[in-house]
C-alpha cells in the first residue's frame, strides 16, 4: 500500500516535470519575464502578447520553425544566451557595439527614439545641466542606463537602476523619481495608462549619441550561430517586403507612426 502510494507520487512528479519541460530542439526565444507593453507582456490568461510576440510568431511562421518562448530575467538574459538556455534574445534589446563584443545580433527589427518622461510639475527643459540633483530612474543594463551615466550622472543627477522597466515607471508614479528614460514607444504606452496620465508627461527626446543608443532593436544571438542569424535575417527581410510589419503595427494604434521598422526593398 505504502509502496504504491509512493509510486503514484513519483508518477505525478514525473508528469509535472514533463509538462514543465516541453519538447526539445525548438528554437528558444528568450523574453524578459516582466511586463514591457506594448511589446511584450502577459495577459490575464497567462499568455504572452504584444507587438514583439506577434513579430516572433510571424518570423517563426516565415522560417517554418517551431519556436518556444522562454522567460528569463532581463539582467541574466545575455548569460542565459551564452549558456544556451535560450537561442535568441527577443526582448527589445538594442544593438550596441558593447554588446556586440559578447554576442551577435540580427538586423534591426524596430527602432524608436529615446525619451525622458517626468512628473507633470517638473520642467520641460531636460538638458543635463538642468537636471542636476534630480533623481532619474532607468532599467538596469540598458542603453539608457549607459546614456544617463555618461551625460546626466556626470552632470550631477542621481541615477537609480531597476531590474524592470515596470518598477521604474511605478516609482515615477509614486513620486520617488523625477524622471524616467527609456524607449519612446514603451513610455508612450505607460503615459496612456491611468497611472501614467495621472502623474506624468512626455518631456522630450534626448540628444542622440549613436555610439551608446545603438542602431535599433535586434534579436540577440550567439556569435557561432551564423546559420540561425541568416535564417532570421532572411525572415525579417521577407516580412518587411510583404508588409507584415505594418500589418502587426496596425494592431497597436499607439505605435503607429511612433516607430521605425525595416523597409521592404
Amino acid at each position: 500500500m505504502k509502496l504504491t502510494r509512493r509510486f503514484a507520487l513519483a508518477a505525478a512528479a514525473a508528469a509535472m516535470m514533463a509538462t514543465a519541460a516541453p519538447a526539445m530542439a525548438d528554437l528558444k526565444f528568450g523574453v524578459a519575464a516582466e511586463p514591457y507593453p506594448p511589446f511584450s507582456s502577459k495577459d490575464a490568461s497567462g499568455t504572452w502578447v504584444g507587438w514583439e510576440i506577434d513579430l516572433m510568431n510571424a518570423v517563426c511562421a516565415q522560417m517554418n520553425e517551431k519556436c518556444e518562448l522562454v522567460e528569463v530575467a532581463w539582467d541574466g538574459i545575455i548569460p542565459a544566451l551564452t549558456s544556451k538556455q535560450i537561442d535568441v534574445i527577443w526582448s527589445s534589446m538594442s544593438i550596441t557595439a558593447k554588446r556586440k563584443e559578447t554576442i551577435d545580433f540580427t538586423n534591426m527589427y524596430y527602432n524608436t527614439p529615446t525619451v525622458l518622461i517626468g512628473a507633470k510639475t517638473g520642467d520641460l527643459d531636460i538638458t543635463p545641466a538642468k537636471l542636476k540633483g534630480k533623481v532619474i530612474g532607468v532599467q538596469v543594463s540598458t542603453i539608457h542606463e549607459a546614456y544617463l551615466q555618461k551625460y546626466y550622472g556626470s552632470a550631477g543627477a542621481e541615477i537609480k537602476t531597476y531590474a524592470t522597466q515596470d518598477e521604474a515607471n511605478n516609482d515615477l508614479a509614486a513620486g520617488r523619481l523625477d524622471y524616467v528614460q527609456a524607449d519612446g514607444s514603451a513610455l508612450d504606452a505607460f503615459l496612456k495608462t491611468e497611472q501614467g496620465t495621472a502623474c506624468c508627461e512626455l518631456k522630450g527626446q534626448v540628444a542622440d549619441d549613436p555610439e551608446i543608443l545603438g542602431e535599433g532593436v535586434g534579436g540577440g544571438l550567439r556569435k557561432e550561430d551564423t546559420a540561425i542569424k541568416e535564417k532570421l535575417n532572411a525572415a525579417i527581410a521577407e516580412l518587411a517586403k510583404s508588409g507584415k510589419f505594418e500589418e502587426i503595427t496596425a494592431k497597436y494604434p499607439d505605435l503607429v507612426g511612433k516607430m521605425i521598422t525595416p523597409k521592404g526593398m
Binding site: E167, N170, D171, A198
Partner: peptide
C-alpha cells in the same frame, strides 16, 4: 516597497 509606492498617488488624490 512597491505596495506602499503604489498607494502614494492614491493618498495624494
Amino acid at each position: 516597497y512597491y505596495g506602499l509606492g503604489s498607494l502614494f498617488p492614491q493618498i495624494g488624490m
